[in-house]
């Protein structure tokens, strides 16, 4: 049995998650021992339409993106969403609260009318096609990326955590950011990242998306307890997790 053929594609994103693959450093040899990349714009000049696994980065913001993604889905036996833009829409979804024409003008100014700059509300991959596995994060963690690839190579389901970031803050003895008057999204955000942002003195930005079935009532309670409002939480959530709820600057 030959190694599975892997193709890596990108849509609207910063390509930072693909860079995490390149940055596997010596581990990349291990990765190449398990899979054979056949298309990878960031690292290969080859192209191929014959592949088993598609790893897709970025979100879908244009009609032609949607068409291309559907083609990838058709050819791939397995489709993996790589990084926040692909798994939840990520930062790209910020614009969904705005009028698309405004967005276009604001970003591209006088060039906005050019046909290739057309834009639509952002969608995560699974809002367009079936996604088999999601590697969350902005950017994805190399450790988790490796674990998912190895699980799939062994033919078993990868373990993707479904507990909030709070768990990992507790395990590494990070004091709750609310104690320092921060609004932290860790309580509703899927863990697995080992909570580096709160540990570094920031707050959780929610880049791994929400846990399954977050408790909204509880979130409201936490806000009350620390003298914050649900709107404070909403504003923070909008960065990675909301299709709306932010005001858009006018150009």
């Amino acid at each position: 049995m030959g190694k599975p053929r892997v193709a890596i594609f990108d849509f609207a994103c910063c390509e930072g998650c693909q860079l995490q693959i390149v940055n596997l450093e010596e581990d990349i040899l291990g990765l190449l021992g398990l899979v054979q990349p056949v298309e990878w714009r960031e690292a290969l000049s080859d192209r191929s339409d014959e592949y088993d696994i598609a790893i897709v980065e970025g979100s879908i913001t244009r009609a032609e993106d949607e068409e291309r993604l559907r083609g990838i889905r058709k050819r791939a036996k397995l489709l993996i969403a790589l990084g926040a833009c692909a798994t939840i829409g990520g930062v790209n979804k910020l614009k969904n609260a705005c009028d698309m024409e405004d967005v276009r003008r604001y970003v591209y100014g006088r060039a906005a009318a050019m046909p290739h700059l057309a834009t639509e509300p952002t969608r995560a991959l699974d809002e367009v096609v079936k996604v088999d596995y999601k590697i969350h994060g902005c950017p994805v963690s190399r450790r988790e990326l490796g674990a998912v690839v190895r699980s799939l190579a062994m033919g078993v389901e990868p373990v993707i955590p479904n507990y909030p970031v709070c768990v990992e803050c507790k395990l590494r003895e990070t004091v709750c950011r609310y104690e320092y008057n921060e609004v932290c999204l860790g309580v509703v955000t899927r863990g697995g990242c080992n909570a580096p942002c709160p540990a570094g003195g920031g707050w959780c930005y929610g880049c791994r998306g929400l846990v399954d079935d977050p408790n909204v009532n509880a979130a409201r309670d936490v806000m009350d307890k620390y003298g914050r409002t649900p709107a404070d939480l909403q504003r923070r959530l909008a960065l990675f997790n909301s299709p709306g709820a932010v005001s858009c600057p006018k150009s």
Partner: peptide, 13 residues
């Protein structure tokens, strides 16, 4: 349970 985040902080500490 209505007010529980299921974050398990209470159990972990």
């Amino acid at each position: 349970s209505e007010r529980c985040h299921s974050c398990a902080s209470c159990v972990l500490v």
